Simulated assay, not measured.
Amino acid sequence: MIRFPRALAFALPLVVVATAVPSVSQLPSTPPGTPDKTRVTAGTYAVDATHSMIAWRVNHLGFNDYFGLFGQLGGSMTFDPANVAATKLTATIPVSKVVTVDAGLTAHLTKPGADGAKPDFFGANAADATFVSTKVVPGADGVSAMVEGNLTLNGVTKPATFTAKFIGAGTNFFNQAATIGFHGESTIRRSEFGLGFFAPLVADEVNLEITIDFEKK
């Protein structure tokens, strides 16, 4: 076994990172992604989990809205800019990793039911939610679409629809991957998925804001 001096061993990971990331002088002067549809190429794409997330918003007792976040999304998309209606999309949402800005609220969302009872919300070790598209309807503006599909959440599967808007495409200079990004919006009723605790005092309607990008594989 080769043994490095302690100081050198500590520095080696930093050297690897430094060689993998472009220096400031090598960075482009403009963002690599632009809202130019001609830069989109057909193929199969995977969700970039690091930069994709879903924010949710729900009204609290009629006073105000509060927010939470699902990150580390997974999934894939088969996309052809010449035939947007043929798009196929799957996504996974790790609801067990939900976060809010309040530790107590986050704990309540993931708290198991008392004495084996049903939890108020997701509970501990909740299964990932999934979305599988069944239909994509391109918008007349050429940059948006209506995506229909089936959402499975808390063990319940229901039809769900969201609007998607193309934001940008290009080549990510960090990993040289062809990348395409979208913003989306949807609304669901949590009671339909067995998550109706305290409704309607805490609103049944949950607004979802989606930001997601895909890297070509």
Rank of each mutant, 00 (worst) to 15 (best):
L73W: 11
A126V: 01
N172Y: 08
F4H: 00
D213P: 02
R3G: 05
T38N: 14
F79C: 06
Q176V: 13
E209C: 01
D65K: 08
T34E: 15
S144I: 11
T19C: 11
G196P: 04
K88G: 04
A103H: 03
V143Y: 13
G184W: 10
L109P: 01
L89V: 09
A82C: 00
S52Y: 14
R190L: 12
G113D: 10
A140E: 15
V47G: 06
T157R: 01
E148C: 00
T161Q: 00
P119L: 12
A178M: 05
T19Q: 09
A164W: 05
F174C: 00
K111G: 03
V21H: 03
A7W: 09
N125I: 01
A91Y: 03
F162E: 10
P31M: 08
H51C: 08
K135A: 10
H183E: 15
L201W: 14
T163Y: 09
G184T: 07
A178G: 00
V202P: 01
F182E: 07
F4M: 08
T90K: 08
A145S: 09
N64I: 09
D115K: 11
Q72G: 06
M1G: 03
D128T: 01
I180C: 00
P32S: 12
F63T: 08
G74H: 10
N154A: 14
V58T: 15
D115A: 13
S191L: 06
F214R: 05
E215H: 02
I167E: 15
A199C: 09
V156L: 05
N59L: 13
